[in-house]
């Protein structure tokens, strides 16, 4: 029995045909019994996971209570961000701890990056078929 699941790329722009698909993964985030199911971009070029401000608020996070400040890069360097720890669950996989840079930026999607989403899951992209496969890491 294989412990992996396949997901389809999401079409986010119909005007540009096949280029308009991106690997968005449905994930349920939990913080202190508050849960939120959102769609996270699998971004292997992102060094860290990024949580948009409004999603953090929906989860009940309070900005003032997050004491670990951090500096992001690129466009996100213009916004304050703080480190937060959430639980992430994908379909019937076991929940995992996911650390996020919670940014004050509003108009972005959830970003699932190297630390630590890609440390927890192995991902295989089948871009030509508009599919990707997600598999929990093998525990040593």
């Amino acid at each position: 029995m294989t412990n992996s699941q396949r997901f389809s790329y999401q079409q986010i722009n119909q005007k540009i045909g096949e280029a308009g698909y991106l690997p968005f993964l449905p994930i349920t985030l939990t913080y202190n019994n508050n849960s939120l199911t959102v769609s996270g971009l699998l971004d292997s070029g992102a060094t860290v996971n990024v949580l948009p401000y409004h999603q953090g608020k929906q989860l009940g996070l309070e900005w003032e209570k997050q004491t670990i400040s951090m500096n992001l890069t690129g466009n996100l360097a213009n916004y304050e961000s703080r480190a937060v720890l959430l639980t992430g669950k994908i379909n019937n996989f076991h929940p995992v701890n996911l650390a996020f840079a919670w940014t004050k930026a509003e108009n972005i999607s959830l970003i699932l990056g190297q630390v630590n989403f890609f440390l927890e899951f192995d991902i295989c992209f089948y871009r030509s078929q508009l599919l990707f496969e997600v598999k929990p890491k093998i525990k040593s």
């Binding site: 971004d43 992102a46 060094t47 951090m70 890069t73 840079a101 972005i108 999607s109 990056g113």
Partner: peptide
């Protein structure tokens, strides 16, 4: 959906 990918954010990582 502007993508604000934090490339090389090693300190944050």
């Amino acid at each position: 959906y502007p993508i604000y990918s934090p490339l090389n954010a090693f300190e944050a990582a």
